[in-house]
Design a protein around this nucleic acid. Structure first.
Lengths: 186, 186
DNA sequence: CCTACCGATCGGTAGG
DNA sequence: CCTACCGATCGGTAGG
């Protein structure tokens, strides 16, 4: 039986999310893939490459969600779509989201900076919607940067407790979150 | 020159917060304490004990903050004090808060469960204030558990970005956060 | 994808 | 608090 790079990322994502990057060994990943540890290296060149693939893919998923929000929509609708998009990325692959939020700092400086840049771009989408909302008188916020961090804080931490298999669906979660956040900003 | 257990916790807290528990070695901690690595073991019995001390102390600081809120106050005031108390614990020792939020899962099952119990007790304070607020008609929330998680999410993630040395003081942050949260629940 | 292997480093101990 | 040391394990490579 043969494995693929995707298999390795999936298995490693689960282990990293449970034990952390440094708390997981290549031997554990290999065992969970049902191959010998040396065999992993025909698919990836290092342990860090696995982390990089997981983290950068997550970052791009978040960005793709934000980019897909039509700027033609009303501000409140744009905010709702940013919120549901964010929560859906987390809910679709909670293990990857956990690795993304919890382990991206482990990356070497250069790679870490690439992730930071993606994150800053992503935050810009939230920031601009909030600023435009203030301009239109829809939101009442004195410090838009702080409001943006408040919103993203409430969203990011969900990876710690939200269970897509639980009684509450992502869609329901998104509706509740949108209500809270739109109220908080109004 | 002699070191104390407190010195070790402080140094380890900084290193753990920067590199993670598994990403930090006893040799690094010893070096930063300016002693040989074997010398650490006359103050602590294992690496995990260091983590336990940091994490459990943090947990108790959060709890102490919540317990100090007088139940005689108006609900809105109780919520504001819970918020400022939480943010002050994070701001007073950001490294410890980072280790607390980021590394408590690394603890052995029994210790981890002790931390979980403290966290559940802590969350109960927020939950009860929200429920009482709904009962009094001050808050309009259909799912109090979710509202509680929303509030704690917004609060917890602040350890990732708030810098007590920055332009915004903890007190100012707390005022903004209280405004957002009270609005979100109303 | 496997067998065999390696230098480096890990957390921790003995004994003073 | 130090010197000296240890078994175990780490990420990774050679060569097939």
């Amino acid at each position: 039986m043969s494995i693929s790079k995707t298999d390795i990322l999936s298995v490693a994502g689960t282990l990293f999310s449970e034990q952390g990057y440094h708390g997981t060994t290549m031997r554990e990943i290999a065992r969970a893939c049902d191959v010998k540890d040396a065999s992993l290296y025909s698919h990836i060149k290092s342990k860090e490459e696995i982390l990089w693939e997981i983290v950068s893919r997550s970052a791009h998923l978040f960005l793709a969600g934000a980019r897909s929000v039509p700027q033609s929509l009303a501000i409140r609708e744009q905010m709702k779509l940013l919120i549901s998009g964010h929560l859906e990325v987390i809910a679709r692959d909670p293990q990857y989201a956990t690795v993304f939020f919890g382990e991206w700092r482990v990356l070497a400086p250069e790679l870490r900076n690439e992730i930071k840049a993606l994150r800053d771009t992503y935050e810009g989408y939230f920031q601009r919607v909030i600023e435009e909302g203030v301009r239109q008188g829809i939101f009442q916020v004195t410090n838009t940067r702080l409001a943006c961090l408040f919103v993203l804080s409430a969203l990011n931490w969900t990876y710690q407790w939200f269970d897509p298999q639980g009684p509450l669906s992502v869609e329901q979660l998104a509706v509740h979150y949108a209500t809270f956040i739109v109220r908080a900003l109004s």
